Simulated assay, not measured.
Amino acid sequence: METVAGVIPFKAKVGQGETVARLIAAALPHVENEPGTPLWLVLRSNTDPDMIFLVDLFSGTAGRDAHMTGEAAKLIFATVPPYLEAAPEIHPADVIASKGR
């Protein structure tokens, strides 16, 4: 099975990191219904609390494509942008090495 990933850094406006993290995390119920998304992480930086990372693993490009047009993505991109310094940049990626998947 091919495993691919997605990484999206979100730079929140000053003091809005907690809000951005909470809004992104609110999409978890939608992600739980996606069979092509076995791993989905929302990370908040310890060195910059206004930097949030969304990291996903997918069971192939079809899973990634479905996720990026699914309900979780719609919710995130409908609620998070007002709290950001700039639009997030989506980084589709290939998994080169991993442990625990």
Results as ranks from 00 to 15, higher is better:
40 W>M: 01
28 L>E: 14
40 W>V: 00
10 F>H: 01
48 D>I: 09
18 E>S: 14
20 V>S: 03
53 F>A: 09
54 L>I: 08
47 T>Q: 10
31 V>Y: 05
54 L>M: 14
28 L>I: 14
19 T>I: 14
49 P>H: 12
40 W>H: 15
43 L>M: 13
22 R>D: 12
38 P>N: 07
47 T>M: 03
33 N>G: 00
13 K>Y: 07
55 V>N: 02
32 E>K: 15
44 R>M: 01
55 V>A: 09
50 D>K: 07
50 D>E: 11
49 P>A: 02
45 S>M: 06
17 G>M: 08
29 P>E: 09
37 T>Y: 02
54 L>G: 03
45 S>D: 12
53 F>L: 15
27 A>I: 08
49 P>I: 03
35 P>I: 08
37 T>C: 15
53 F>D: 04
52 I>N: 01
9 P>Y: 10
28 L>S: 12
17 G>S: 09
54 L>T: 04
11 K>G: 00
22 R>S: 15
20 V>I: 10
20 V>H: 05
28 L>C: 04
46 N>C: 02
43 L>G: 03
49 P>V: 10
12 A>L: 05
44 R>I: 07
8 I>Y: 00
41 L>G: 05
48 D>M: 08
57 L>A: 12
51 M>Y: 13
32 E>D: 11
53 F>W: 14
28 L>M: 15
32 E>C: 07
26 A>N: 13
34 E>M: 08
22 R>E: 14
36 G>T: 08
19 T>L: 12
39 L>K: 11
21 A>C: 05
32 E>M: 13
52 I>P: 01
11 K>N: 09
57 L>I: 06
22 R>T: 14
29 P>H: 04
52 I>A: 05
46 N>F: 09
9 P>C: 07
35 P>L: 07
39 L>Y: 11
46 N>V: 12
18 E>A: 15
11 K>S: 14
37 T>P: 03
21 A>Y: 04
